[in-house]
């Protein structure tokens, strides 16, 4: 299966290891992965901040770039939701019927990573090994827009050595919310502090999510407070194996290009 990886601009720029882990994982499971260089951004920040009028070129670029793949996989619940829910809206608003058709053709092929693993590849045991206590934070867009349900935790439960701990108040928002984090910094920080307190109370070593943007906010608070918990994207846990516990030395990465 020819899989187009839509990594997202945040991961491309700030979290290349999440991309490398996604590639390693999908290749391990037999996918032919490509990262089309023409990809940029899904337009979510513009859309959600009230600049929806500006996203049409990004919507067009996405539909063109990913038209030729059997499936498109993205390691981000919120960018996935932007594409699934709002690219059709943006295309309809543009009044360009060809764009609406192109978007309608590509959207059903777009899957968030855990969705792709569980629903398309039909696996919940990806052969991973990660001997740590992990709390899973089901980020809001993964939970309520993408409706990932128990897919991520089903995958985590099958990771050897991993102890999945219950995160109190798991379904509560972490306070990131895109530009909310800077437009309402005090409420954002209050929410983040509660999320971190809950992860610490759960005794987690690692706070895991399917969205690096939320983890950027929580991770930034954790390093500022020098907390004991660290953040990690789901893909990086699923990529780790017994032979390679760090999950960072698979073939492609061994070529010397660590993030």
């Amino acid at each position: 299966m020819r899989v187009g990886l839509f990594l997202t601009c945040v991961n491309d720029t700030l979290y290349p290891r999440t991309g490398q882990a996604t590639v390693a994982l999908l290749e391990r499971l037999g996918c032919d992965v490509d990262f089309p260089l023409a990809q940029t951004c899904c337009g979510q920040m513009h859309w959600n901040t009230g600049y929806g009028r500006q996203v049409e070129p990004m919507v067009r670029g996405f539909a063109e770039t990913f038209a030729g793949y059997d499936a498109v996989v993205t390691p981000s619940g919120s960018c996935g939701a932007m594409i699934r829910d709002n690219h059709p809206r943006a295309a309809a608003r543009s009044g360009d019927a060809a764009l609406a058709d192109a978007v309608a053709a590509v959207v059903p092929k777009v899957h968030e990573l855990s969705e792709f693993l569980v629903d398309v590849l039909g696996v919940t045991d990806v052969g991973a090994y990660f001997p740590h206590r992990v709390a899973y934070h089901p980020t809001c867009h993964s939970l309520r827009l993408m409706r990932l349900g128990d897919r991520p935790t089903a995958l985590l439960r099958n990771v050897r050595g991993l102890e999945l701990v219950d995160l109190p108040g798991a379904e509560e928002c972490c306070g990131f919310g895109g530009t909310f984090a800077v437009k309402n910094p005090d409420v954002s920080a209050a929410m983040g502090a509660d999320k971190i307190r809950n992860a610490e109370a759960a005794g987690a070593e690692v706070l895991c999510a399917a969205d690096n943007s939320c983890l950027m906010h929580l991770g930034g608070m954790l390093t500022r407070r020098q907390g004991a918990v660290r953040t990690l994207h789901l893909a990086e846990i699923l990529a780790a194996t017994e032979a390679d516990p760090g999950g960072l030395t698979w073939a492609g990465v061994r070529n010397g290009a660590r993030g």
Binding site: G19, G192, H217, R224
Partner: peptide, 14 residues
């Protein structure tokens, strides 16, 4: 004010 900026890797994914 309340968060560190993310550490930026030397190399982007692309």
């Amino acid at each position: 004010d309340t968060r560190d900026l993310p550490a930026v890797p030397k190399e982007s994914f692309r």
